[in-house]
Amino acid sequence: MAHPSEHRSCSAGVLRVVLFLVSLFLVAYIVGRPIFWHLRVNSYAQSSCPSCDCDCDSDNIFSIPLGFLNDSYSDCGKNDPDISEEMEKDTITLLSEELSLQKNVTDDSLKRTNALINDAKKTSSHYQKEAEKCNAGMETCEAAREKAVAALAEEHKLSALWESRALEHGWKDERRIYS
Rank of each mutant, 00 (worst) to 15 (best):
F36C: 04
C10P: 01
M138D: 02
W162Y: 13
Y44K: 13
D55V: 11
D90M: 03
V22Q: 04
C54F: 07
D90S: 05
S63K: 04
T113S: 11
I117C: 01
A131P: 00
Q128R: 13
Y73N: 08
R112V: 04
Y29N: 06
L24I: 05
G13P: 00
E88L: 01
A115W: 09
F68K: 12
A151I: 05
K111F: 04
A115Q: 13
F20W: 07
Y178I: 15
C10A: 15
N104W: 08
S84A: 03
R8V: 09
A153G: 06
T140M: 12
V149W: 03
K111E: 09
G32Q: 01
T93D: 08
Q46P: 00
S125E: 10
N79V: 04
Y127G: 03
E163L: 08
V31D: 07
S11G: 06
L116C: 04
L161V: 15
L24M: 13
F25P: 00
G137P: 02
Y178T: 15
L161R: 15
A12C: 04
M1H: 08
Y127D: 07
E163H: 09
N114Y: 11
R165V: 12
C141I: 14
A2S: 15
L19I: 11
L116K: 06
A45G: 07
S47T: 04
K78E: 09
Y73I: 01
N60E: 05
V27D: 04
H3D: 10
M138H: 02
G77P: 00
V27L: 14
A12P: 00
S179V: 14
I83R: 02
D107P: 00
E97R: 14
Y29A: 09
S109R: 03
S74G: 10
E97W: 11
S58Q: 13
E163R: 10
H3I: 08
S63W: 03
A166S: 07
M138Y: 05
N104T: 08
K78F: 01
P4Q: 05
K121C: 03
N60C: 02
S58P: 04
A115K: 11
D71Q: 14
L24F: 14
G32A: 02
E154W: 10
S124N: 12
I177W: 03
V27P: 01
S23A: 13
N79D: 15
L26V: 06
D53Y: 11
L158H: 10
S74C: 11
K121Y: 06
L21C: 13
K78R: 09
V41E: 09
S96N: 15
S125V: 02
S74Q: 14
K157F: 12
F25L: 10
V27N: 03
L15D: 11
S9K: 12
L94W: 08
T91D: 07
Y73S: 07
D57V: 05
D57R: 07
S72V: 11
S23H: 05
H156E: 12
V41A: 05
E174Y: 10
S23P: 00
N118R: 06
N104M: 09
L19V: 12
A151F: 07
A115P: 00
S23E: 04
E85V: 00
S51E: 15
A120L: 12
L101W: 12
N135Y: 02
V31P: 00
I35C: 03
S179L: 14
S11C: 13
L69E: 10
E154A: 14
L161G: 11
K172D: 08
K121N: 07
L94V: 09
A151D: 15
E130V: 07
S5Y: 08
A136K: 13
N60T: 01
E142R: 13
I30W: 06
L24K: 04
I83E: 01
